[in-house]
Amino acid sequence: MSSSAAAFDARRWRPPPLVRSARLRWLIGLGFALYLAVALGTLEINWLRVWEGLDRGWAFILAFSEPDFLTRWRDIRQGLLESLTMTVVSTVVGIALSVPVALGAARNLAPLPVYLLCRGLIALSRSFQEVIIAIFFVAMFGFGPLAGVLTLSFATIGFLAKLLAEDIEDIERDQAEAVRATGASWPQWLVYGIQPQVMPRLIGLSLYRFDINFRESAVVGIVGAGGIGATLNTAFDRYEYDTAAAILILIIGIVMAAEYTSSLIRARIQ
């Protein structure tokens, strides 16, 4: 046996710990446990209220067994149609705005000032959750679907432009170079050298964003930006759980149908 093999004891081997110092390891563990205990203490849980809440939750779950589509059908229908309209309009507007922003946000296409401007716009759009943007637009333009459409269009930019710009930055350079070498103008170069390479991704992302926008249209409705969310909120306010259940079932159904369809289409275009 050589000396280095003697220093290694196969039975005592353990993987090296994440934190090397044993003292520090214990300190971190204990500190976290202490914080958790104190934090739970400050929550002031009212157990009576929790008990009542369980009751209401149960009533809500029971409502799912007999959802009421009919009593408020006119409201539900109007809300759904409004949501779908908001989704379609905001997705189309969002894509139309995202494509130029994506071109500007791709470092291999845009000069630095344009790049920074477009990246800044994307960062702005991504840093706010839809509900916050919706509150802002509702405050600006009042209740209703216009605020919702603006919200979702703006949110679409942050999503679509960022991912599309990354795809543009990942293109095969020699394909684009070959098109430039033919004497193509800049717009022709985009259409022949870039667009074919990013088109599958653009279509896939657009369909995906359509799903997201429909789901979000229900959420932004709760803060007054129109659509099925507003109808849902009203149903909850009136304690009409059976109507709320009907609305939720419809939302789930439509989201699932949209996701299934879009995944079919995306699989086709790959």
């Binding site: 095969e172 394909q175 170079e177 004497g183 074919p196 390479q197």
Partner: peptide, 18 residues
């Protein structure tokens, strides 16, 4: 001037989806 010079590439550089 570029259109007066044809170019042929190592990895063909065809736009693959066209």
């Amino acid at each position: 001037a570029r259109r007066r010079m044809g170019m042929i590439f190592q990895e063909y550089a065809l736009v693959e989806r066209l």
